[in-house]
Nucleic acid binder design. Structure first.
Lengths: 160, 160
DNA sequence: CACGATTATTTGAGTCTTCAAGTATTTAAA
DNA sequence: TTTAAATACTTGAAGACTCAAATAATCGTG
């Protein structure tokens, strides 16, 4: 027997669906227009910029951006064409490739960041009270771990 | 001056990003595997099934599924090839096309629904308390309207 | 009633993602 | 030490989405 959604759940689910879709599309348009990249690629640059030496193994990078190896490989190929990322051989393991953020990539990221953060703030945080932000964080802290393969969620909330 | 995200906001934003992405990908895989369609297409069938006469104008349908006209047109073309949807001319306005759910489409939807709802429940609602579900609904009710062009959000929460 | 503006929809090219398959290298074990 | 299994990554084809442009029909106004 299927347990269908009651009215509260139905409303919540549809609202979540459209909010996440529309927010993502909005960020995509903003970044595409102002910086020539979709949101996914912005996140790749952002995560690389936070890594020691601004470089990560393809596998590590895939892990932090929650990407399949295939998607990431295609993405890095594109980012490489833009000159924003370089593929560097791993010093000891010849199977692995490292993706390294170039100076141009870093500059592009720095220029893209303000507009992107503005958009996130305006769309997501401005309409919420502080209490709601904290509630939302707890809600997501409950939902995310089961979706995350491995224990990636700890990287967001801290391992504490 | 850019107002950057503080720690709470940063955690909340990243958690939201990955939760929505991973949830969507998970639903896509489940539906693709079990019913041969991505989640977007399931939603199109679902919305048509709720319409009077199981048919809507392309424009109306685009509105309820928050799709661009172009995306919807491509999607309906694919759904038509599957035999799940038919394009029917509008009785009075020859510019407009109506999309109509076929009996096969309805059957497919009915068969797909239980597995899909299970997945939504398991991933989103099982980890949350009732209070959190209601909190989440209020949060989304605050965020969605600004993202929705027109006042579509009323269709979810009721115009009251 | 003409005709420019608006509305409704489609098309095609380019991009991004997915999935399945393939290559290369390292690890582990017999 | 040779070889099967595991790991790391890439490739190509197919599907889906975006954007810009095109077509078609109706509306509003003079």
């Amino acid at each position: 027997m299927t347990r269908w959604l009651d009215d509260d759940e139905q409303q919540t689910w549809r609202a979540f669906l459209w909010t996440s879709r529309l927010l993502n599309e909005s960020l995509d348009r903003q970044l595409q227009r102002d910086s020539g990249m979709p949101h996914t690629y912005y996140v790749i640059l952002a995560m690389l910029s936070e890594a020691p030496g601004r470089r990560l193994t393809m596998t590590e990078l895939a892990r932090v951006v929650r990407s399949s190896p295939s998607r990431l490989s295609h993405a890095v190929t594109r980012l490489e064409k833009e000159g924003w990322v370089r593929r560097v051989p791993h010093p000891t393991d010849r199977r692995t490739t490292m993706a390294e953020l170039s100076d141009e990539g870093f500059t592009t990221l720095v220029e893209a960041a303000p507009g992107h953060v503005e958009a996130v703030r305006r769309h997501l945080f401005d309409p919420l009270t502080r209490e709601q932000v904290l509630q939302l964080r707890e809600i997501l802290r409950a939902v995310l771990p089961a979706l995350d393969t491995e224990d990636e969620a700890a990287d967001i909330f801290g391992p504490a």
